[in-house]
């Protein structure tokens, strides 16, 4: 009964990826980051759904699409609590929690306009730090400046 009701909220997919436990306020950011507005596959998403663990959560389901580790790391930056579920033939094939990487390459732009990565053809590279309040910050490998969560722009 309970399960059926969930299905009514967001449709099931036969093959593809379900991204669950996205903080409600970040659903749109994940959506944009994965460029889902450009995909030709079916996409369902829901937000402000009730979650026992996280209060209000969001969920995104993408048909016939599976993500590389590099993209999964990307998701961790805006939705560190997210779970990625691979669906094959309506069955859960695998389920992983995203994890915040210690360093990232080529995903985010450096916030510093005078950084070499914004002036020459150089792939960005950051060390991922967390501040006292647990917020994510990126320290640029090149210019050594900090890019805060609020300033993160994704390629």
């Amino acid at each position: 009964m309970n399960n059926k009701r969930k299905e009514l909220i967001v449709s099931a997919i036969s093959n593809g990826t379900v991204i669950d436990h996205i903080p409600a306020e970040n659903v749109y950011q994940v959506f944009k980051m994965l460029k889902l507005d450009k995909t030709s596959h079916q996409v369902y998403f829901g937000t402000n759904l009730e979650s026992k663990k996280y209060g209000r959560k969001g969920i995104i389901k993408i048909s016939d699409t599976y993500f590389q580790d590099e993209v999964i790391n990307k998701i961790a930056l805006v939705a560190p609590t997210a779970t990625l579920i691979e669906i094959r033939d309506y069955e859960v094939y695998s389920k992983v929690s995203v994890s915040i990487p210690t360093s990232i390459e080529g995903i985010v732009k450096c916030f510093n306009p005078n950084c070499v990565t914004n002036k020459e053809e150089v792939t960005t590279k950051f060390e991922v730090l967390t501040d006292e309040t647990g917020k994510l910050k990126l320290a640029c490998h090149y210019c050594e400046k900090i890019t805060n969560k609020n300033n993160m722009v994704f390629f």
């Binding site: 005078n114 070499v116 020459e120 210019c143 400046k145």
Partner: peptide
Amino acid sequence: HPVEGSARY
């Protein structure tokens, strides 16, 4: 160099 990070690069 006037650009930050240029020496590392």
